[in-house]
Simulated assay, not measured.
Amino acid sequence: MPESSVFPPLIDDCWVITGPTASGKSALAIELAKRLDGEIVSMDSMAVYRSMDVGTAKPSEQQRREVPHHLLDLVAPDEPFSVACFLRHAHRAVAEIRDRGHTPLLVGGTPMYLKGVLRGFDPGPPADWEFRKQVDEDIEKFGLDRLRDRLMQVDPLSAHRLHPNDRRRMTRALEVAKLTGVPLSHKQLQFEQQRSPEQCRVFACMWPRPILHERINQRVDQMFAAGLVDETQQLIERYGTLSRTAAQAVGYAEVLEHLDGRLTLEQTVEAVQTHTRQLARRQETFLRSFGERTIVDMQSGGSLAEISQRLVQKQP
Rank of each mutant, 00 (worst) to 15 (best):
E140A: 14
R219V: 04
L235G: 01
E254H: 09
Q188V: 02
R209S: 13
P164L: 05
R119Q: 15
Q315A: 14
W207Q: 07
D73F: 10
Y113A: 04
L263F: 11
A280E: 05
T241H: 13
K115W: 05
Q194C: 12
E140Y: 04
R168A: 15
R215S: 09
R65W: 01
Y239C: 04
L162H: 06
V229I: 14
H258M: 15
L74W: 03
G240C: 10
V75N: 05
R244D: 14
Y252I: 09
M206N: 08
A95E: 15
D78M: 00
I139H: 02
R288Q: 15
F290L: 14
M52Y: 00
A305N: 07
I216F: 08
P126K: 11
V272E: 04
L106E: 03
L74R: 13
V176Q: 06
G109N: 02
Q233D: 14
D136A: 14
I295K: 10
Y239P: 02
S82Q: 11
R201L: 13
D149M: 07
L256W: 08
A225L: 00
E61K: 03
G124C: 00
D122N: 13
Q134F: 07
S243K: 05
R215H: 12
A173Y: 11
R168I: 11
T264H: 12
P123Y: 12
G291M: 08
G120Q: 02
A95G: 11
T274Q: 14
A57T: 11
L304E: 04
G55K: 00
R219Y: 03
L265V: 07
M206E: 13
L144F: 05
E3C: 03
K178L: 13
F7G: 06
R168F: 10
G55V: 02
D78W: 05
Q315I: 06
H91M: 02
G101D: 02
K187Y: 02
H186P: 01
D260W: 02
E292W: 08
Q218E: 15
K115R: 11
V272T: 05
V229R: 09
K314N: 11
I295Y: 09
R35A: 08
E61Q: 09
V176F: 03
R172W: 02
Q188H: 11
A253F: 10
K34P: 01
L147I: 02
V6F: 02
I30H: 07
L28D: 00
T268E: 13
V107Y: 03
E266S: 12
A253K: 15
P125D: 07
A226P: 07
S308P: 07
E306T: 06
L212I: 06
R92S: 10
S45W: 00
E130N: 15
S303V: 11
Q248G: 10
R167H: 12
S185L: 01
E39H: 13
Y113P: 03
F203I: 03
A127H: 13
S23P: 07
D145V: 08
G302T: 10
E284D: 12
S51C: 04
L184H: 05
P208H: 14
R288E: 12
V176M: 06
L184G: 09
V229H: 07
I40W: 01
R150Q: 10
A246K: 04
